[in-house]
Simulated assay, not measured.
Amino acid sequence: MPSFSTYRGRFAPTPSGPLHLGSLVSALGSFLDARAAGGEWLVRIEDLDPPRCPEGAAETILRQLEAFGLHWDNDVTWQHTRDDNYQKALERLNAAGLAYPCSCSRKQWREYPIYPGWCRNGVCEPEKPVAWRLRSDLGERPIRWKDRLFGLQTFDPAELGDVVLKRKDKLWAYQLAVVVDDAAQGITDVVRGIDLLDNTPWQCQLQRALGYPEPRYLHLPLIVTPEGQKLSKQNLAPPLADNPALIRRQLFWALQALDQAPPLALAKAPPAEQLAWGVAHWSVSRITATTERPAP
């Protein structure tokens, strides 16, 4: 395993509501992977979109992590404080011909599977507000990387479209911010849900364009409802437990969901004991490479 000096992981929730079982599995997987490697585990609050981030939600998330024994290293990073860093990256991409302003609305290209790139050679309607997009048709194609669970991945970014980097309302988009912040924090390993697997090609493209190192990626199976929907805040997934007995039970279930096969006697143990066992026995090779896991 890599040493402390070469491993740094992170958990980066959007504070649109409290954590649920799906986010617990992602947080736990990234925590165990970092601690088993003797590395650091950071927390970053991805609060780029104020309308989606109710007051107090971020603080609730931090309290939930602490209640489950998931203690982070160093200070929490808040994306809303990092506008200048994103702007500098966008300017570099623009200077390299890899980013461009776009006036088109989703309504205008709704009959196309992806944005057709109409503004690549000049803004179609200069009088309108513009977003900034990434030229997905330039640079190395296809993008290849090896996921630690799902193996070799190959995507052509041009088949995914010119992703937005900065929105028309002047808010920064996820793809640029996550790449800039992962590089700034020295993140070596990204552990997250498989719903973000197809975001990775854009992020690799940005990393290469900006000269950033590429982290290793481990995408975990999603936790889904009995109907097969992703467990999420948008579909009103219940928040994590807030009493000690249920916290122990949910943490134990998350270890099981990650296929770590904890002994049944551990189910009633406090979080610190469960996590110590999880770190000592963590094995990515145990995780079954399926895309979904049912919630209890």
Rank of each mutant, 00 (worst) to 15 (best):
R148S: 13
T14K: 07
F252W: 10
R82T: 07
A184D: 15
K88C: 13
Q203N: 05
S5R: 14
G139F: 05
P215E: 08
G278K: 05
L236W: 04
T77V: 14
L48K: 13
L210E: 02
A158W: 13
E91H: 10
L220W: 01
Q229D: 10
G29K: 06
E273G: 05
L275I: 05
A257V: 00
R120I: 14
W172G: 11
V43I: 15
L210R: 01
K88I: 10
R286S: 11
I61A: 03
G69C: 02
S3G: 07
L21N: 06
T290I: 14
L231W: 03
P50F: 09
A241G: 13
L98H: 03
G211H: 04
L152P: 06
F155P: 04
R106F: 14
A245V: 14
Q229E: 13
N74E: 15
T188P: 14
D137A: 06
R249S: 13
H20Y: 09
S285L: 12
S30Y: 05
G17Y: 08
N199E: 02
D73L: 05
R120D: 03
P262A: 00
S23Q: 13
K170C: 10
C104I: 06
K88Y: 12
R286D: 06
E111T: 15
Q229S: 04
D169G: 10
V224Y: 11
P270S: 05
L134Y: 11
R248L: 00
L48F: 14
E159P: 08
V123S: 11
V178R: 00
A58K: 03
P13K: 11
T291F: 10
G38C: 12
E273W: 05
R141P: 01
N199F: 01
P142M: 04
R144V: 10
L220E: 01
K146V: 09
F155Q: 08
P129E: 12
V123H: 08
K128W: 11
T225N: 00
V224R: 13
P244A: 13
E273A: 14
W253Y: 09
A241R: 05
D47P: 13
I287P: 09
